[in-house]
């Protein structure tokens, strides 16, 4: 009961914040580009050459998994924790009958909820875009990409799981720094560096030492053998960073 009450409180706190707008914008950004790109009379040249899932969905998803989703998580994690710092409400939160681990876990669950919501809205809009393309160019049967639902579902699920580690790391950083610039800056640098180090510089050490790189690892076919392993690494990072976040915040709570 206590945990659910805490979670309910955390959900109320995000009402009317920019978090929900960012979630929506991050979700519709790629589908909107897809729509504009394919409705103006020049559909993607790959349509019809390969199966609709690969041509329509798999061609788009890397942008989400490699760039947009990590950046989105950096942003919402920082903004969510900033609600307490900006409102100067930590003292009141900690003086209420709630356990610190419940408060922190509830906040992390809200971050995860927003991430899932972002992926759901993205997929819903992708269906809409596919339907629009299908309507204009029925010869490509783009909407048939949904027949590969199991592949689509698995890609989304493993990408999401691969963000656990970076999500928890950003969560810890956001709690640690009262100023939002630091966690945001560190997160942005990590998000930009990850694809460069992994894909351009072929620095494979990045795979397990850089939580921000894991969502790329699980999205690239050349790393197919370690997709499952990368997800476990992500879960392990999540546990480590959440424990660190708790211990660190518990230690510094008294100065909040």
């Amino acid at each position: 009961m206590n945990y659910l009450s805490t979670l309910r409180g955390e959900i109320i706190k995000i009402k009317r914040t920019s978090l929900l707008y960012f979630t929506f914008l991050a979700a519709v950004f790629t589908p909107a580009i897809m729509l504009l790109d394919n409705i103006d009379g020049t559909p993607d040249k790959d349509f019809g050459l390969v199966d609709p899932y690969k041509a329509f969905y798999l061609g788009t998803f890397p942008f989400i998994a490699f760039i947009l989703l990590p950046l989105f998580i950096v942003l919402i994690t920082t903004l969510l924790i900033q609600i307490e710092y900006k409102s100067n409400t930590w003292k009141q939160v900690l003086a209420s009958p709630q356990y610190l681990h419940s408060v922190l876990l509830s906040k992390f669950v809200v971050v995860q909820g927003l991430t899932i919501l972002m992926l759901l809205i993205f997929n819903a809009f992708m269906i809409g875009v596919a339907a629009a393309i299908d309507y204009n160019y029925p010869q490509f049967s783009i909407l048939n990409y949904l027949k590969s639902f199991d592949r689509l579902w698995y890609l989304n699920a493993r990408t999401y799981i691969a963000t656990f580690g970076m999500s928890a790391l950003q969560f810890w950083l956001a709690l640690r720094f009262r100023n939002f610039i630091a966690p945001l800056g560190i997160g942005l640098v990590c998000c930009v560096m990850s694809p460069i180090l992994l894909l351009e510089l072929k620095w494979e050490n990045v795979m397990d030492k850089f939580p921000h790189a894991l969502s790329i690892v699980v999205g690239v076919k050349q790393f197919e053998k370690i997709h499952v392993w990368a997800q476990w690494i992500s879960v392990m990072y999540m546990v480590i960073f959440l424990v660190l976040a708790y211990l660190d915040f518990n230690r510094k709570t008294m100065k909040v």
Binding site: L4, S5, T6, R8, G9, R16, S87, T89, Q92, V93
Partner: peptide, 18 residues
């Protein structure tokens, strides 16, 4: 210690269930 982006009622609702 109040959340400026919420109404008075919403601020209280955060703690009511707790």
């Amino acid at each position: 210690s109040l959340y400026g982006h919420l109404t008075a009622r919403e601020n209280l609702e955060i703690y009511r269930a707790i």
